[in-house]
Design a protein around this nucleic acid. Structure first.
Length: 106
DNA sequence: CAGTTGACGGCCC
DNA sequence: GGGGCCGCCAACT
């Protein structure tokens, strides 16, 4: 039984390790197609399980959170990431150091 | 059923 | 380096 696109995305986001961040494109690629970047954003927007889905670990390719109008304020997202051990620089995360290093990257 | 939208990504200016 | 435009796919109205 094949999972729905959203479920795949949620599954990937849930696998993001603590102290690490992933870009929408990264999650999309792991979910099956890297072009789902927008779909990923949409999926997290509906976010049916914000308590189990660390959507705050998902950032844009610029290492920036979604414009400040995220699930409860981008400030909240940054705070959670810092709590995970992710450092920020002028409001953006250091992707080079904290981007999720997926072992099954394609 | 068809059109528009959207928590994005990549390329161009 | 910063800003803007186009393209992609799935979901929503």
């Amino acid at each position: 039984m094949e999972k729905n696109t959203f479920e795949k995305i949620y599954d990937v986001v849930r696998r993001i390790p603590k102290g690490t961040v992933a870009t929408y494109g990264q999650v999309a690629a792991l979910a099956g197609n890297r072009r789902w970047a927008r779909v990923v954003g949409y999926a997290l927007h509906v976010n049916p399980d914000s308590e189990n889905i660390p959507c705050y670990r998902v950032v844009t390719k610029d290492g920036r959170v979604s414009d400040e109008f995220a699930f409860g304020g981008a400030n909240r997202q940054v705070e959670l990431l810092e709590a995970d051990g992710v450092r920020f620089q002028d409001g953006h995360v250091i992707m080079e150091e904290y981007q999720w290093d997926t072992p099954w990257v394609e």
